[in-house]
Computed example of a mutant assay.
Amino acid sequence: MEEGRWLDISYLLQGTALQKEVHALLVRLNVMTLLRHYHPIFVGTIPLGIQVEDSDLDIICEVHDREAFAAQVGLHFGEMDQYSCESRIVDGIPRIKINFTVEDWPLELFGQPRPSKKQNGYIHMDVEARVLNILGSPFRRQVIELKCQGVKTEPAFARLLQLEGDPYQAVLGLGKLSEMELEALCRERFIN
Rank of each mutant, 00 (worst) to 15 (best):
E2H: 12
E3Y: 10
R5G: 08
L7G: 11
D8A: 06
S10H: 08
Y11G: 02
L12C: 03
L13Q: 14
Q14E: 10
Q14L: 07
T16P: 01
L18W: 09
K20N: 12
V22Q: 14
H23L: 00
N30Y: 01
M32P: 07
L34E: 14
R36L: 01
H37R: 10
H37N: 04
Y38I: 12
G44K: 12
P47H: 04
L48I: 10
G49E: 11
I50F: 02
V52Y: 12
D56N: 08
L57F: 09
D58Y: 11
I59R: 06
I60M: 05
L75Q: 13
E79A: 07
E79T: 13
D81C: 03
Y83T: 07
R88G: 03
I89G: 01
V90T: 14
G92W: 08
I93T: 15
P94D: 14
K97W: 08
I98F: 09
V102Y: 13
V102N: 04
E103T: 14
E108L: 04
F110W: 06
S116T: 15
K118C: 03
H124K: 03
M125F: 06
D126H: 13
E128F: 10
V131I: 04
L132E: 11
G136L: 02
S137Q: 15
S137D: 15
R141V: 03
Q142I: 00
V143Q: 08
I144D: 12
Q149V: 04
E154T: 14
P155C: 05
A156I: 15
L160T: 07
L160C: 04
G165V: 08
Q169Y: 00
A170G: 00
V171M: 07
L174K: 05
K176S: 15
L177H: 09
S178Y: 06
S178H: 08
E179D: 15
M180T: 15
R187N: 03
N192Y: 08
